[in-house]
Design a protein around this nucleic acid. Structure first.
Length: 965
RNA sequence: GCCCUGGUGGUGGAAUUGGUAGACACGCAGGACUUAAAAUCCUGUUCGCCGCAACGCGAGUGCGGGUUCAACUCCCGCCUGGGGCACCA
């Protein structure tokens, strides 16, 4: 009988569900293995073929590990809080909990279709009170802790209080304010409010002030991507920076440990680099300069941060950020107007724009800094490329050694001092550290690299600066002015943040009437009198709160006492394989690494890196299809003369653009179709054509050919009246690779493909598409090939005409060889996540078995086990037809035996001067001397050597032979 | 601007450590079976040249250099597609 995938897949999915085949226990004699997919947000748009790529990869690997005898944890759940549901609620008045639950149902049905081996009993949802109760609890741990720099780990804030009471803060520098110093006596004399304010400066979760994108017209705070060119994306209203009270996590205290931890985990080099750059540790110095405005010496000083203190004698100007507080005092009378203009200009610019701007902009303040060694007056400028948040918000400009400084100096014709002699050519900056210093007073003749330490020491001796380690990373903003997130378990009491007791958790998200923001940029919770009346915090937590620890909850999802029992986390330990996209390179991955370290420090778990190995999946791009609307031009005018649309097939467009087809020819074609539309005069007046590309739904295009019967119904018949100018009876679309998205009509729904070809085909095709970690465009056409492969495999067992084919005979050497080659290659490929080559290996093996007419059980049975991770349904079906009553899911993975694949001879390619000229079968036992002799005897070789003497004979055993003449 | 990542036939891709470039599949072309279609099977398919064909020759992995007996693979300099960003010092 033929391969009936629909009934087979339904049958086994039901069976596996009924038998609880994917249930995982927290105790087992088998070794554990934990495979995790990145937490999905259940969006309303549903899955497209790009989403399951990583899930299929992780599913294959989980099943593979299970066959190898591991107890495999492979859970799934939902990162269910988030902005889209809230936006939806605002627009449609539907409670986010309701729409989210709906989305999850759809999501789940789509996942089930594909036949994943998730243990659904372990599902978690971050918006579920039984889950966020522990998110709140972990927040309280962060709130109740500080980072003890002395021992390099987090500790209870109670220990800090005791220390303050007995010794002041002498042993605990305040991370928020290094100048804060007090004795035990002082501490004990402080009123409670002041003590609490100080403690807040130490807590790992703390309240501070921060800037947000405030849009007055919308009355709300906007995310960065909702702001475009300084105005709101929706409506184009102005957006300004507004300072609000915000919660933060003191992740900066963990910068070094997050950096060091990277060496202990198996992340790609690229990923580690991205995190390293994000943390951005640099070594340098802070140097202070005194300032003058005109003749007046200012009391303020200007502190700059530099990684190159050795270049201080090359300073030709200073640049401060436009937000720098010194600007007021420093700006001279003459410069006031231009400075104000410049500051106004900068206010309209986002940080991103300021960074990306290629055009040099800046403004002189009129004030000067005094060089600490030479006393030279150095002009102080303002420029948008310097940002207030990093370092001190001020830099020293050294044009000869820094490219940007150099361009700045040239642009504003600031004279350039050369401190590196010939190493600087006067045209471009040279950022070397190895040049010898000149014009540098006591550093003259020194190599720059060495001068750095000398200079740092000198400025420390003089008390005008100090060595300083800087991080680009800053504390993580941890509050949102939103409704659909975890409420903070915090009650405000006369300006003091009081944590709720554990017994009061979960602090439930209250019901609201509407989801509009509260007054003055506060969140919707500020609209609830009872909530505000109790002094409860009106911010909610951001999306990454729930996703920073979810991998722990899967280990013990139903625990009502703890976030996760120690025995469960000790058993499952780290995630062995984590699969997800690079978009989480820094955000999510860094935060969850941070939370894990804190929980480790506090003794809650026994490991400090959450993910042992990370595999990044590439993005599946859409392959968009276009139809072309014809527009006529006359001079500058662009006109649509036609009362209804004329859609031109791609061939005409290409012909016109290549200059092979004239305007008149195309118009004549149109006139032939609809004489009423084009008249003589129009044809005369038309000078050119424009082909307006319109996205057309890829699902009504076969390859490039548009299905004309369906296009007329598309979008409620929007194109029903269109006129179609065809190429040889067909409408051919244009194509382009773009991001897969609904708006581009290039999404392909996995449900339809599963319906048409089955889950096994779909799974294998997603893998066959290319390396899992690379981005690639989707093309539905190729799926046929994979489907044919499964049918071919099926026919090895059961032929439509000939019936059941499997026989018990002992396989011959060729058959054994096919099997064992496949075992080796498929296990290796699966192990290194090269799923695409594994799929081709399956195809090659089936092709070969087919050629050998092999239907032997001893070959086919182990082959099915190999296939199980990739195509579980068909494998289980054929397995049961072979007579097994147990499930193939727990079969033993076949062992590779080298004896079956050993070769005695090899067909060597023989090159002369690197060009292959012959192939020769030579025994693998032959020594180099023997090989040389055999090769040189060959007539073909002699011919190619043309009698020239042999210079070199290269023999790589088992690979190739090269003769150099 | 910065960071990351790609670029190989008509298409997706293979080549795991520098060792026969184009596996496997799609598409396309031709053929078999069929009343016909579907399904299936067979043959061919990097480009150019000579040729009936076999065989053969030349070129070829984004571009330009380099290292090497040998480069898709390593080095230098460019071009270009994709993705990300909070803060370049």
């Amino acid at each position: 009988m033929e391969y009936q995938f629909r009934s087979i897949e339904k049958k086994w999915q039901d069976h596996w569900k009924a038998t609880g085949a994917y249930r995982v226990s927290n105790s087992s004699s088998r070794p554990k293995y934990y495979v995790l997919d990145m937490f999905p947000y259940p969006s309303g748009a549903g899955l497209h073929v790009g989403h399951p790529l990583g899930y299929i990869a992780s599913d294959i690997f989980s099943r593979y590990k299970r066959l190898q005898g591991f107890n495999v944890l492979h859970p799934m759940g939902y990162d269910a809080f988030g902005l889209p549901a809230e936006q939806y609620a605002l627009e449609h008045g539907i409670h986010p909990a309701k729409s989210t639950a709906q989305n999850i149902t759809t999501f789940r049905a789509q996942l089930d279709n594909i036949g994943f081996c998730y243990d659904w009993q372990r599902e978690v949802r971050t918006c579920d009170p039984s889950y966020y109760r522990f998110t709140q609890w972990i927040f309280l741990q962060l709130f109740g802790s500080f980072y003890n720099r002395k021992i390099g780990k987090a500790e209870s804030i109670e220990l800090l209080k005791q220390a303050f009471a007995s010794e002041g803060n002498i042993n605990h520098v305040c991370p928020a304010n290094e100048n804060c110093r007090f004795s035990a006596a002082e501490w004990n004399s402080y009123p409670e409010k002041q003590q609490e304010d100080i403690l807040m400066d130490y807590r790992l979760a703390y309240c501070g002030w921060g800037e947000v994108n405030w849009c007055e017209a919308l009355g709300t705070v906007l995310a960065n991507d909702e702001v475009v060119n300084g105005v709101s994306e929706r409506g184009g209203h102005p957006v300004i920076k507004k300072t609000l009270r915000q919660w933060y996590l003191r992740i900066t205290e963990y910068a070094d440990r997050l950096l060091e931890g990277l060496d202990t985990i198996d992340f790609s080099e690229a990923m580690r680099e991205m995190q390293t750059n994000w943390i951005g540790k640099s070594y340098g110095a802070e140097i202070s300069f005194s300032l003058v405005n005109g003749d007046k010496q200012l009391s303020e000083i200007l502190t700059v941060y530099t990684t190159r203190p050795d270049t201080i004698f090359g300073v030709d100007f200073m640049v401060v950020a436009p937000e720098h507080p010194i600007i007021d005092a420093l700006t001279s009378e003459e410069c006031k107007a231009s400075v104000e203009d410049y500051l106004t200009y900068v206010k309209s610019r986002s940080d991103r724009e300021r960074q990306a701007e290629k055009k040099i902009s800046g403004c002189f303040t009129g004030g000067y800094a005094l060089h600490p060694f030479t006393g030279r007056k150095i002009p102080v400028w303002i420029a948008e490329y310097v940002l207030m948040g990093y370092g001190t918000g001020a830099i020293m400009g050294v044009p000869c050694g820094d490219d940007r400084d150099h361009r700045f100096a040239q642009h504003f014709t600031i004279p350039i001092t050369n401190i590196i002699g010939a190493a600087y050519d006067g045209a471009v900056a040279n950022p070397t550290k190895d040049a010898l210093l000149e014009n540098s007073d006591f550093l003259n003749g020194m190599v720059m690299r060495e001068a750095m330490a000398v200079m740092t020491q000198r400025i420390e001796e003089l008390g005008i600066g100090r060595r300083k380690v800087n991080y680009k990373m800053r504390d993580a903003s941890f509050s949102r002015q939103r409704y659909w997130g975890e409420p903070f378990p915090i009650r405000w009491d006369n300006g003091i943040a009081r944590p709720l007791s554990e017994k009061e958790l979960p602090l439930l998200l209250p019901e609201v009437e509407k989801y509009e923001p509260g007054p003055e940029g506060e969140g919707p919770l500020a609209n609830i009198p009872e909530w505000v009346g109790e002094g409860l915090e009106t911010n909610t937590m951001p999306g990454y709160a729930g996703s920073s620890w979810y991998f722990l909850r899967y280990m013990d999802p139903h625990n009502t006492q703890e976030f996760c029992s120690r025995s469960a986390s000790d058993y499952w330990n780290q995630v062995d394989l984590y699969i997800g996209g690079t978009e989480h390179a820094v955000g999510h991955l860094l935060y969850s690494r941070f939370w894990t370290k804190v929980l480790f420090d506090l003794g809650q778990i026994g490991f400090q890196e959450p993910f042992r190995k990370l595999l990044n999946q590439g993005m599946i791009q859409g392959s968009s299809r276009f139809m072309y609307r014809l527009l006529l031009t006359r001079g500058e005018r662009k006109d649509d003369h036609f009362s209804s649309d004329v859609m031109v097939s791609a061939g005409w467009k290409q012909g016109y653009e290549a200059g092979n087809i004239s305007v008149q020819e195309i118009l004549k074609e149109v006139a032939a179709l609809r004489p009423d539309l084009v008249n003589e005069e129009q044809m005369k007046l038309t000078e050119g054509l424009i082909f307006q590309a319109i996205h057309v739904d890829v699902n009504i295009v076969d390859g490039l050919e548009l299905d004309l019967s369906r296009i007329v119904q598309w979008r409620n018949g929007e194109y029903a009246q269109s006129i179609w100018l065809l190429d040889q009876g067909k409408y051919i679309c244009g194509a382009e690779v773009e991001k897969m998205s609904k708006s581009k009509f290039n999404t392909v729904n996995p449900d339809q493909l599963v319906e048409k070809y089955g889950a096994d085909t779909f799974r294998m095709y997603e893998m066959f598409l290319g390396p899992v970690d690379q981005s690639k465009p989707w093309d539905t056409k190729g799926i046929e090939g994979v489907h044919r492969f499964l049918k071919k495999l099926w026919r090895l067992f059961d032929d439509e005409q000939k019936g059941w084919m499997v026989e018990a005979a002992e396989p011959n050497a060729a058959e054994w060889k096919v099997l064992h080659k496949a075992i080796k290659k498929i296990a290796d490929d699966t192990e290194r996540f090269s799923f695409n080559t594994a799929v081709s290996t399956f195809m090659i093996a089936v092709n070969e078995l087919n050629d050998l007419h092999c239907h032997k059980k001893a070959i086919l049975e182990p082959f099915l086990i190999l296939l199980t991770p990739y195509a579980p349904h068909i494998s289980e079906e054929l397995w049961s037809r072979l007579g097994h009553t147990d499930s193939i899911l727990d079969a033993a993975y076949p062992a590779f035996e080298a004896k079956y694949v050993q070769e005695s001879a090899k067909e060597y390619p023989i090159s002369i001067n690197g060009k292959v000229r012959a192939n020769l079968l030579i025994s693998l036992d032959a020594t180099e001397e023997e090989v040389k002799e055999i090769v040189l005897q060959q007539e073909v070789i002699q011919k190619w050597m043309e009698g020239k003497p042999l210079k070199k004979f290269i023999f790589v055993k088992g690979r190739m032979i090269n003769l150099v003449v």
